[in-house]
Design a protein around this nucleic acid. Sequence first.
DNA 1: ATCGCTGCAAAAATTTTGCAGGTAA
DNA 2: TTACCTGCAAAATTTTTGCAGCGAT
Lengths: 153, 153
Amino acid sequence: MTKRRGLSPSARRQEIAVLKDRLRGRAHKITGPRAAILEILRAHPHPLTSRDIFSAMPRGGCDLTTVYRSMHLLEKMGMVQRFDFGDGAARFELLEEGDDGHHHHLVCVKCSQVVEIEQCFLREIERKIASQNGFKAVTHKLEFFGLCPRCQR
Amino acid sequence: MTKRRGLSPSARRQEIAVLKDRLRGRAHKITGPRAAILEILRAHPHPLTSRDIFSAMPRGGCDLTTVYRSMHLLEKMGMVQRFDFGDGAARFELLEEGDDGHHHHLVCVKCSQVVEIEQCFLREIERKIASQNGFKAVTHKLEFFGLCPRCQR
DNA sequence: ATCGCTGCAAAAATTTTGCAGGTAA
DNA sequence: TTACCTGCAAAATTTTTGCAGCGAT
């Protein structure tokens, strides 16, 4: 049950510094675009598309290509988790250190509001399915969709 | 637990006729491309992309555009179910009459072999998540991924 | 100074749309 | 006949790639 909101500006600045260290520590460089992407992900606790991030860029911004390349890098480093809501665009969330990123979402099909579902209900079932079919290293992707309270009328 | 394989040629011919009737009965026309698409879906009990279907077309074939348009139609009529494995392409399976199409898959991440998982484990959890968050009409998408027996070495 | 990183342009891949002509019922 | 369908071409989207030059350390 990790906190994802409500950090004070100073705590937030600190966390961004930690993120930058994670990058720096692996022979990668802290650049303007990457710092901006981390800030944006930090400020939005819900999954963002590359285009969302691109649009949220401060003046100056960066090329959309750079966002795509940065997301690949951050994903490979385990700093963001990729999600897929079934429309054509990948979405990303920042990962706390030590978080494996496995969680799910409840998405309003009308307004796209997203609720984070922290628990996972399928670890046991996953094991059963793996052994029943002789598969190894089984994971799953699960997302819930429905009508949020405000969109119900 | 619907059967999806092993029909005799005559039973299969019969079933295709039923499918055609379902189309005809709603002011839609049975055309060469649509008949071919139904045949192909019938012959492959696993999710196919529009391109898969296009490639499986007999000589003469049809335009890829027509496949896309046909899949939209068949989906709207409830005759196929759309699935999404998270690569960029939608996949489709033929639906038996009365089947709501809700089931899941176990996909080998290496060879893409697909095992159909007929049961759904989340009806109860779905209800709980809906009520806990004030959502209505909650559904979910779930797919499993892993290494199949043959790809494990 | 050295790699890595970025912007720009172009390409790849999937899917959608417009239009003129063809076809099932 | 008359809608409905289809092929072809073009466009829309998301994502990837090549290349030349810039930049963080």
